[in-house]
Design a protein around this nucleic acid. Sequence first.
DNA 1: TAGATTGTTAATCGATTAACAATC
DNA 2: TAGATTGTTAATCGATTAACAATC
Lengths: 229, 229
Amino acid sequence: MASDQNTASAPRVRIPEATIQRLPVYLFRLQALQAHGIKKVCSRELADELKISSSRLRHDFHYFGSFSRPGHPYDVEPLIARLRDILVLSEPIDFIIAGMGNLGQAMATYAQFEQDGFRLVGLFDINPKIMGLNFRGVTVQDLEMLPDLVRARHVPLGVLTVPASAAQSVADLMVDAGIRGIWNFAPINLKLPANVVLHDEFLSASIMSLSYKMKTMLGSNGGRRDSGA
Amino acid sequence: MASDQNTASAPRVRIPEATIQRLPVYLFRLQALQAHGIKKVCSRELADELKISSSRLRHDFHYFGSFSRPGHPYDVEPLIARLRDILVLSEPIDFIIAGMGNLGQAMATYAQFEQDGFRLVGLFDINPKIMGLNFRGVTVQDLEMLPDLVRARHVPLGVLTVPASAAQSVADLMVDAGIRGIWNFAPINLKLPANVVLHDEFLSASIMSLSYKMKTMLGSNGGRRDSGA
DNA sequence: TAGATTGTTAATCGATTAACAATC
DNA sequence: TAGATTGTTAATCGATTAACAATC
């Protein structure tokens, strides 16, 4: 009996966070290749395009077993299927959005999520002017209705696009209703039970770290505004 | 203690990417503490709140010199000023947005950026129905006008919220006009000159890695089915 | 002062890269 | 087959954590 770990959903070792975050990037690139009619790709080509080493790519794949046979490049189509299988459940994952300001509306209308295996099932806000609006076939309801929907449909995933001041209490609402993962856009460090997955998306932090990189790239003295000593 | 040793822009060694991405998070938490009237904070407290080790926090700070004196906790106000100085230039950084779909509109109306030292100076799209709309005092113009504005005002930063199919060509437009950094939301690997800073924000990748984590958590700790309804 | 807590170096840990055997 | 390229382990590199001297 050799090592037959070709079951994608049950890797034996803990997968590094860095690897997990690269898997969707592999997937997107492969989908783009497929759209161009490309059937096969070797680790070197794919890695070059993503500006990583081929070694790293094969190492990442290796956590989940084997994806081809030595001497042969990867077949694009089954590789896509395999990655999709690793990343998402076979049936769509239901999600709700709390906070239908501009960011919430953008998330509600972002079509890509649907293609990636996520299904929008609820939108919530406290602003009466926003309640009743319809996005992609889903009507914005009062935030008070959130727990009922989450319980009734066993919604596993919540997107949190409320103001920072409300984020913790709305997160608590989600957790109490049984949500299993929160995608948080509020710039605040939420306190959640250990069994709820939290993924922070701090857009302001993102633009600030970009700003830092631009600043350092400008020059060794930090740019033209260097106040004379 | 005004600005005597604020040589923040000239650290001696290369700063790890991970450290750079934590700096804004420190800043946000400190601003929240300040809003609550808290004047001093020690590395242990601040780190605990952010779920990192105090050692890591002090190590991060140490890249930029000294922030207090042994035996004394950090003063919140000067620490905020110091971090802001490290992360952004003292005067606001001008930025433009290309692609005024839902995500572009959300970025245009996100007030936080202004507080963090960024100034919206241009909005662009190719859709005639969107041109002429006004967001935060800025009118959406034809994409063709982008190079002129970037050149005229020396705009350093561009936000790319166009569809993936258009992303590379619009990025080229920005780069040719002299932009220095691109914040890219299109799920595609842009090819840019080495002197232009690229920061990818792959939202779909984010939700998929969150999905993976939820999936593995369901399998591994299996115990908690549902909190006793 | 003495206790507290930073600044700073050393030890540990984990992730990336290199190398090559396996093998189609 | 022979060349190509994966799968897989070992070596290297970098980041995190631990420890404690410095010192206010």
